[in-house]
Design a protein around this nucleic acid. Structure first.
Lengths: 253, 253
DNA sequence: GGAGGGGTTTGACCTAAGTCAAATTCTCGT
DNA sequence: ACGAGAATTTGACTTAGGTCAAACCCCTCC
């Protein structure tokens, strides 16, 4: 009754809850020069914030708040979003273990966006003052920041393309593939995972209505491209999904 | 016959064709430490590219090409865009005097987007090798790069908001206000200017069809919000335009 | 375990904006 | 100045996807 392609009944196995090792973390190259791994706890205390665990729904920072810490996600996931005036929000990204948050506030020293934990999430928080002191001395750190920001810009550009030029099916297909790729990079299954974000979040991120997300997922399911049950997703036909996304996930040269 | 609010007849006065002084250029803080202003031409030659003038339609760089130069726009305007598969493109930005192009290629060392002159445009081109040599020694340069990239990210986020959450009228109103503000910063008129980009470019940038751009502009004209004749635009009611854009241009704090 | 509530799904309806096509107006090179 | 071609505008028609509303399904908390 639960063979490949069949509808998913009952509850699916939950994701493993592993955290990234420091070695795999996007902030590693920032932390390493600070000697944070060597157990220098007096320094560690001045750099790290106390609260390192956020529950589902808790905020890492508010939009407009002064930049105090850079956050590296150790485990869990976070959404970032911009307030869009009328109480609505535009989700600008979903972030997983190993990613760094807060860099987009570096020049204004104020967070342009807000960050909220999607599930229980543990982070390393790096004091911005400390960070800047050290960065001034250590050009390698700055070069890392530039790399991270550059990658950020590239991701934004892909999203721009998605929002400007793709219909709902293409957006969702590209989204699922991107998720799949990012999870695979973290050694999770590329074809079977739990979404930590709601349909509404996905819709906001992709610029489509919540209901449209549901409808397109239903259509994909009818066509045998994937199976969903609530937040659990199994991708059944990656080839077809890529065709729908028109190779947005493909990397040239 | 040509009073305020009236239709524009015949040809409108052309914009003044001033270039920014080095002092007002976004690359100034990058150039200054290199001593480029002091007439050190032997250094200048190793850093600057020969061709400094691009005609309308000429490319500054192609998508996928290796990063060779950073470009600072001295005068004129440039559009950047991503190839979107099917031969179509997504315009990702319009750039004016004082802005720096190419930074989004810094970590990949390949241009993710393509840049094309919208009119006769003069630039300073800074060799990336030279730049990186110098940046390694001079942390101040890197800090400037970080600032410029950070501002870039913020602009992208505003655009994301526009593409994800606004209808055609709101997008166009916000676009015109943003143009107006940027031109005013460069000491042009905030209410009267020539667009250097086509309706198609605007539509691509805003994620709407060329025809929709025309129709919305026509509607604005009927309502007395602005007057257009071809690429010449006069904003007649900034208040109303801001209301339509729902204060996207407003700066909090 | 039952009530409550948030997230999800589905249906009906409607509108903003896309597409196709043709007319018109400029621009630019010769 | 002229002609070719590009950009813009307008119209007619179509449709993807938004909105509103109701049902449903879990999950949590008491």
């Amino acid at each position: 009754m639960t063979g490949p392609g069949a509808t998913i009944h009952r509850r699916a196995p939950l994701r493993a809850c592993a955290q990234v090792a420091c070695h795999d973390c996007g902030m590693y190259r920032l932390c390493a020069p600070l000697g944070l791994e060597r157990g220098d706890f007096s320094l560690l205390d001045t750099v790290l914030r106390r609260k390192l665990i956020y529950r589902r729904g808790e905020l890492l920072y508010r939009a407009g708040a002064p930049l105090e810490y850079l956050f590296a996600i150790r485990g869990g996931s976070v959404k970032t979003y911009l307030p869009a005036g009328n109480g609505r929000v535009q989700v600008t990204g979903f972030h997983f273990a190993g990613e760094v948050l807060g860099l987009n506030a570096i020049d204004g020293h104020r967070h342009p966006s807000e960050a909220q934990a999607l599930e229980t999430t543990s982070v390393c928080a790096l004091s911005i003052e400390r960070f800047e002191q050290l960065a001034r001395r250590e050009p390698a750190i700055q070069r890392e920041v530039i790399k991270i920001m550059s990658a950020d810009i590239r991701r934004h550009q892909e999203l721009l393309l998605l929002l400007g030029k793709r219909n709902a099916e293409e957006r969702l297909a590209a989204y699922l593939l991107s998720l799949s790729r990012r999870l695979a990079e973290r050694r999770y299954s590329a074809t079977e995972f739990n979404l930590s974000m709601s349909r509404g979040d996905i819709g906001s991120y992709l610029g489509i209505a919540e209901e449209t997300v549901c409808r397109v997922l239903a259509r994909f399911q009818e066509e045998g491209v994937l199976a969903t049950r609530r937040r659990y997703v199994r991708l059944l036909d990656l080839g077809r999904l890529r065709a729908i996304a028109r190779d947005l996930g493909a990397r040239p040269g």
